[in-house]
Nucleic acid binder design. Structure first.
Lengths: 236, 236
DNA sequence: GCCTTCCTATACCAGTTAGTCCAGTGCTGA
DNA sequence: TCAGCACTGGACTAACTGGTATAGGAAGGC
């Protein structure tokens, strides 16, 4: 049994036993090393291990702290499907079902601020997590990005990543609308649910930092497999 | 990550999110340092950085002020049902169906950060616009507000308004979760829809500016009569 | 003998803390 | 009108913190 493992186990015991209260600061590394009878370098090995498993939190030049069990606040940020899946430890998948250039509808032209019937690229994808289909995803890109994206392979890839890589475009803001609907027969078959089952429908217009529309999104999520989370703030 | 940078980011977030109104004075450096869990010297590093980029203005011997010109558009804003209806030119209604004190469940106690089985006030309301039922709304308030609110008349009134009037409480942030479900028979009858029709279910925990939980909300909206809109921002 | 691995000991650095003292501001009450 | 006073940011200090780099000792395998 090495000294660093002994120090680790001793600290683990002290922490589980409540010797150091949640939120409190541990004694300095020099003191702690003395108390445990090991050198500072050895103690730091043990502390790093405790940090990596979340038992302790380090704060440079301030000390080591016992985490408070306060649930973390989910920030109100825009996460792509890919990022969301990865944050949950799941593998995001995407099967491209359609990828073609067509004229923009009036509504799309208005949202993207382009001319009606100007060419747009529509990409339909069935998205899943760990293989289970979760969402049917339609994206419409304006003419300026058609050339760069019309032959891009978006299978199992993040659209946001490809937009950045191929067009140098960074999505900054997204106007999102959510509603609940019933699945029709086609959608039900794609998502593996029964017709009439509830789906969460998200309509999105994404913009760059300077306010240029980048894409229109239309997502239909399985009601039982997806929830939407956001932080809302009240205007002062 | 140094403590001063953490303090800087926390303040930036609070400012963009509207925690401190434009033109208002921040708490004194000593108070603010305490709130952020950082020493005054470290806080002043963060404040100086915010001043150099124009986010804050200092006034010696008086305090730190938020510039009057708006800094940036805040993320998705929180609108009460009442405000939302009025913004659409509709008359908000609310029929109180239940208003009683009961012990908190384990889950509620955790979310409200109170003791399990501590008394909470549950208020069930059927909310409508121009008389048409749109939403079944359950709110749970923690023990501290039970006395002030337990006999309040919330018929056709905004809960947020009454909280401000009777408890001096201002809701600042709300963590919102949305999902799609099917209406069961009871809910369908209340909302005047058929059983199995899609409903948009919102779960909410609302907080004051200092992070104290104020209420838990559980709202079930008619899928065909309500959409949820938000602006989401991508983390820089 | 020679290498690796683990540990100890020491020193220095930059960031942080707690504390003190100061002068200016703004309110209150005589 | 003015004195008193609580509070503010401004400035500074001494002590302490983790982060990092260095050198050396002890044990074990080859």
């Amino acid at each position: 049994m090495t000294a660093s493992i002994q120090a680790y186990e001793r600290l683990t015991r002290d922490l589980t036993v409540g010797r150091y209260a949640p939120g409190s600061r541990l004694p300095g590394e020099r003191d702690l090393a003395g108390q445990l009878g090991v050198s500072r370098a050895t103690l730091r090995l043990a502390l790093s291990r405790l940090e990596s498993e979340g038992t302790l939190q380090r704060s440079a030049q301030r000390g080591w702290f016992v985490p408070t069990q306060v649930l973390s606040e989910p920030p109100s940020t825009l996460q792509s499907f890919t990022e969301m899946a990865r944050a949950r430890g799941l593998r995001p998948t995407a099967r491209v079902m359609r990828q073609e250039v067509r004229p923009a509808s009036l509504d799309e032209a208005a949202k993207l601020r382009i001319a009606p019937a100007a060419p747009v690229l529509e990409i339909d994808r069935l998205r899943g997590m760990d293989g289970t289909p979760v969402c049917f995803d339609v994206v419409v890109l304006p003419s300026v990005h058609v050339e760069a994206m019309k032959d891009a392979d978006l299978t199992d890839r993040s659209l946001y990543d490809e937009l950045r890589r191929l067009c140098g475009i960074e999505v900054h803001r997204s106007a999102y609308t959510l509603m609940a609907e019933s699945a029709d027969a086609d959608l039900a078959r794609l998502l593996g649910i029964t017709a009439g089952a509830p789906v969460l429908v998200g309509d999105e217009v994404a913009y760059t930092a300077d306010g240029t529309p980048v894409l229109i999104g239309h997502n239909k999520y399985r009601g039982d497999a997806y929830r939407f989370e956001a932080d809302l703030f009240r205007r002062a």
